[in-house]
Design a protein around this nucleic acid. Structure first.
Lengths: 200, 200, 200, 200
DNA sequence: CATGAATGAGAGTTCATTCAT
DNA sequence: GATGAATGAACTCTCATTCAT
């Protein structure tokens, strides 16, 4: 019957609700100020209920990490079908920054925050992180074959490009761009990426 | 009287001790894990004593912010006597990153951390932050006059350069450089700065 | 109808399952660590189901008490057909201790544990407890008639014998016999009962 | 001056107050129902205050254990100057039971309760427990030399005597003596000890 | 000036119990 | 009959802050 499926769906929805409440609160104030009680208030359930869906607070953030990296990696991939190596590289950078703008909470959690999770810090995620890095290097290498980056070391190029976009993303996310008028932010980012191309 | 001065000096020394204990603890684990008790233990005074020198925990971090920005600005200035605009610009970037490496706690506090301080977020500091930004723009403008950055908007250039060095600094500080072997970090940074020059 | 009976039987079986799960868990760690959830997990039913068979947690332990005392009394009775009064008395003691060894959870619950149950503490059970005590006194009286316990008050004798076996049983159950090597436990108990006979 | 001493004394008094509140509550209801809040209410302080004097709940009960065993051992020793071996042995038993009557909470904690403390269960205390057991054996051995316990194994005798007094003590403490009228309790105990002498 | 005892508020987590399905 | 989602109350423990001494 549909009854079982409905339950399944409700269970999923609840997990989603908890995760998205946690993510929302997280983006407001950072990991430590997110409390189980606040999450409960946000979803208008009691505290104990959360523990029916997640073993503990850590598991919530672990799951958010997982999802963040998965979504992130997908977005990166979406650019790979662009033929022109230079265009692809720039699109790659744009997608990176766009992810940070669209999903600031995720970006924060993944690349900026200190997280006290043992599991997160050491293992799993960075395989996904490295896959992205490898993708970047692949794109650079192909740009090199097309004649760009003459005389530049691959590692240096990769590190430079990543630092550049991460710099933009993290300044944006942590509100360190007050000296820049909001309306001129987008063209600024676009301009910056264009500017960097000069170095290719 | 000398007595008065001595008192003044002692007061200052105590404030210093508290601040440096707080900074040390902060760099270990981030804002939330710094407790007044830990600071007190570190300086081997009682908790209450701290409140004789600072109104609350927030004020301590506010003051650390102040000092961080002051020291930061000084370091930036030190580069200004270099004649060659290009060299000066690169030296500027190097100094920026060097500050992050030498004073990771400050850099973290100033440019990465969320601080729950209302005062910090809005006002004071950014005057100092803007001064640095103005300095950067000045250096770029002079490089432009010397023929660099042809066809590049000043704002775009400034934003780009800042993002670039901030990206490097913050990846470094938050340990997101695991895919890079430690020994190759320094040449990598140097290489990156050299790479960026190609865009000038 | 057989249907009714089957239902009856199923109901009984379920109660049994719950009770035996509770007893098992209880013997592992004591009253407070037995949770309704653990019982439910043990019988592989949901928590709510338990409440269809027992009003609350307390009722479960009340029932366990009942059963413990019933079984206990039966075991005591089994000795009554021994002719010789002295032998019967010793067999009585042995049976007592044997019960504690075979059914430590019951013995613990009945004679050692604190139970938060109001009903238990005051009434029902002690009628059964007293029946056992009366049995003990009966046996002693008959031993007296056979010439034992010269000059000893009946109440004193009964109290002494009970204390003795209870002492052995409860030291054993609560693991307070660490100074005694395990292998010498059984002969020790036998020896102790033999020793006590000297006082008869 | 006296100021320091007064502080010292107040600190001590507070620890005492906490310990005695904990002991009182413990004797009412057992380990698990003693909560930090109840202790705090009992001494009319806030919960946090307790943590200024004890690291955690476990430390409180560890300390109570320590004190219990120390006091217990002293009481046992007090009997050793009695010359006559038989009298000494009986006095030993009386002292044992008297401790249980005077300090039922301690006795309970030490010899009856399950305690979840890791430190307690394995090590320290049982050295003290064994010292008492050794004392008992010493007294029995000397009674043997004086002609008592003919043909009885030392270990058996020691185990028997201990079981006997422990039986009395624990029945008394856990209120399993309802069938015995209160007023006849003391003579009963005395009678029981006298009865046991017949076996010597 | 310095102390440290005291607290209130709040953290994460657990559990017996209820009830709509 | 059986479920399992939900809850409220309780648990231990921590912390910034105050204040009498």
């Amino acid at each position: 019957m549909g009854a079982k499926e409905r339950k399944e769906r409700q269970k999923t929805e609840m997990r989603e609700a908890i995760l998205s409440a946690a993510l929302k609160l997280f983006s407001d104030d950072g990991y430590d100020t997110v409390t189980m009680r606040k999450i409960a208030d946000e979803i208008e359930y009691s505290v104990g209920t959360i523990y029916l869906y997640f073993r503990d607070k850590n598991e919530i953030f672990f799951e958010l990490h997982n999802r963040g990296f998965a979504e992130f990696f997908q977005k990166q991939l979406s650019v790979q079908n662009i033929e022109n190596p230079l265009e692809r590289l720039t699109a790659h950078g744009t997608a990176y920054i766009q992810f940070a703008i669209d999903r600031p909470e995720y970006y924060d959690l993944m690349f900026i925050s200190r997280t006290p999770s043992k599991e997160i810090n050491k293992n799993k995620h960075w395989t996904e992180g490295e896959r992205t890095y490898d993708l970047l290097k692949l794109n650079i290498r192909q740009a090199m074959e097309a004649g760009y980056f003459k005389g530049v070391d691959l590692e240096v190029a990769a590190f430079s490009l990543w630092s550049f976009v991460h710099g933009i993303a993290s300044l944006f996310i942590r509100d360190r761009l007050m000296m820049v008028p909001v309306e001129s932010l987008k063209p600024l980012v676009a301009g910056a990426l264009k500017f960097l191309e000069r170095a290719y």
